[in-house]
Design a binder for these strands. Structure first.
Length: 539
RNA sequence: GGGCCGUUAGCUCAGUCUGGUAGAGCAGCAGACUUUUAAUCUGCGGGUCGGAGGUUCGAAUCCUCCACGGCUCACCA
């Protein structure tokens, strides 16, 4: 396996390789099984940027692995839809109805949106269409299917066999009052259907069963008091969080899984548990959380940070992918200003990718991961011009326009290779115009020229009125003369013109601008503004 | 309290894995584009690399301790 490739997905891929050697020495896996990458989701809420990041990053490790190995791979998106609901999410309808089902597995709660067969059914559908919309290749697996379909049975019985060892792993992390009672098993109450309210009172390893009582009420969810004995298999019982994770690793034979840094300790405990069961934990890494502009954790309810939709309004998907690719172990601030920067860095990398001469330069370029589909399809992936997104944003603002053709005219003057990158740049112009309309335009402050400047305005107006040529330089000269002839300080003269026409102190070279905007149109614009001025005077 | 991350130019951050003359963008200043402004381009200024020790011929980089800031965990999956 190549040691030359330095970017983090290859390092992770090497960890997968080391993991496989360990797992195979314990004959837990054979050469022919696909190497399994897993990402997990709690379907108690809607997919978000963290969901996207985790799948994207895992997929990049998978790609790196496939680049340096011939073994087949598979990505599992695992949904924890057997988890109980602890509290009603704020951003869903019919909260009162959902509140009645607190404590039950998500797959046994009605869909608050009334579209799918259950709460988690709705969230799972959202997750899948979300992942599909980005073109991810994955196999969807649900906790409910695994438990109730009997797929987890062997693992569950194994946990029962290793009951004390598994308990010891968790118990050492618990405070004393809870130690004695704790059990990895949480039966689904046969009477009320809740899973968060039950407590194991006895285990019956020979029968593969546990006894329980439903007496653990919590805020909003009353326990019914029922007691009974159920088999641990076939979905009558689920296991608690860290054990659940270990169970998945053990039964599915997961080879790689990453997780947020809030789960570092969970991962360590799950590692101990899966070893206690006789399995080999997957290779993996933790990644950092996203922060908002002030360095606080992003919060959907407070509206801090950026959502994926926000980002995609003003930056292409590739720029978001770039942001997520870079330094997964660093807590990064997610706010508007990073969009142009990420986009520009991505464009530079795209340019480098296009001119790379050695294969390793290509393989180590984030573009190799971000544009995986296009590259694998044999499409040309490159960016020839040196137009940056920052420049387009600036240009659109300076031109004070939402006319894309005019922006293109200016871009062509700057770099005649722009048409080679037409699709990419056109998309950027689109987003820049949207940004301009929504953020820049509302802040425009038009000011009418004061009396000192008026003679110049009159002279320019007369010139434009009689002008029937088509030469930007002639117009430029006339504009210049209009100020000069009337003894207006030129700095003030041009500033006044920009203030009147564009609502800002600075602007493009006026001859060029008037030529592109249109002599007639400019004249009309001046007349409109002057009409406002005389109307203002009449008040 | 445990774990982890960060501290580098006015601002946002690269550079730390693998030690070898401190970097980029923005902001500031100056200049170029036949004359104005802007785009754009060129140049300039600007940092005790959080602090203190240590290793080394040589430390932003490796080791130890400390300070400050932040995230996260402590029986929720």
């Amino acid at each position: 396996m190549s040691e030359q490739l330095e970017s983090w997905p290859y390092r992770e891929a090497r960890h997968v390789d080391e993991h496989l050697k360990r797992a195979e020495s314990g004959d837990a896996k054979s050469d022919d099984d696909p190497v399994l990458f897993q990402t997990g989701f709690g379907p108690s809420g809607l997919p978000h940027i963290g969901t996207f990041s985790e799948v994207a990053r895992t997929n990049w490790v998978r790609r790196a692995f496939s680049t340096v190995s011939d073994r087949p791979t598979k990505l599992i998106a695992f949904s924890d839809d057997m988890d109980g609901l602890r509290k009603v999410p704020e951003n869903i309808p019919n909260g009162d109805m959902i509140a009645e089902h607190l404590g039950k597995p998500l797959c046994d709660i009605p869909d608050p949106f009334g579209e799918e067969d259950s709460f988690s059914g709705y969230m799972n559908a959202q997750l899948r269409s979300f992942l599909d919309s980005f073109g991810f290749d994955y196999n969807f697996v649900s906790s409910k299917d695994m438990y109730r379909g009997g797929e987890f049975n062997d693992g569950l019985l194994r946990i029962l066999e290793c009951y004390d060892e598994v308990r010891q792993v968790i118990i050492k992390t618990l405070r004393n009052p809870n130690r004695d009672e704790w059990s990895p098993f949480f039966p689904v109450c046969e009477n009320c259907g809740k899973v968060n309210n039950t407590r194991v009172t006895d285990v019956h390893p020979k029968d593969g069963a546990v006894s329980y009582v439903c007496d653990q009420s919590f805020r909003g969810a009353e326990a019914c008091g029922h007691s009974g004995t159920v088999p641990v298999t076939d979905g009558h019982v689920k296991v608690g969080w860290k054990v659940d994770w270990a169970l998945r690793w053990y039964v599915l034979g997961v080879d790689y899984e990453m997780y947020g840094k809030d789960l570092i300790e969970s991962a360590e405990l799950s590692t101990e548990i899966v070893r206690a069961l006789g399995g080999e934990p997957p290779a993996g890494m933790f990644y950092e959380m996203f922060l908002d502009e002030n360095g606080a954790k992003i919060s959907k309810s407070k509206g801090t940070g950026l959502s994926i939709d926000d980002w995609l309004q003003y930056g292409p998907l590739e720029s978001l992918a770039w942001f997520i690719f870079k330094k997964p172990k660093k807590a990064k601030k997610l706010f508007f200003e990073v969009i142009p920067r990420s986009t520009d860095q991505y464009l530079e990398a795209l340019h480098d990718y296009g001119v790379a001469t050695e294969s390793e330069q290509e393989l180590d370029n984030p573009v190799y991961f971000i544009k995986d589909e296009e590259i694998d399809a044999g499409e040309e992936v490159t960016y020839e011009s040196n137009i940056s997104y920052s420049m387009i944003l600036n240009l659109v603002s300076v031109l004070n326009t939402d006319d894309r053709d005019m922006v293109w005219d200016y871009l062509r003057r700057y770099d005649d290779r722009v048409d080679a990158d037409k699709d990419v740049i056109d998309d950027l112009v689109d987003r820049a115009l949207r940004y301009y309309r929504e953020f820049v335009f509302p802040t425009k402050e038009y000011k009418l020229p004061d009396e000192e400047v008026m003679p110049g305005v009159e002279q320019l107006r007369e010139f434009l009125d009689q002008y029937d040529g088509d030469d930007p330089e002639e117009i430029q000269t006339a504009t210049y003369r209009a100020g000069k002839d009337n003894d207006i300080k030129l700095g003030k003269w041009f500033r006044s013109m920009y203030r009147m026409l564009l609502g800002q102190d600075r602007g493009p070279r006026l001859g060029t601008f008037i030529h592109l905007y249109g002599v007639e149109e400019t004249l009309n614009l001046i007349n409109e503004r002057l009409a406002e001025k005389s109307a203002g005077n009449a008040d």
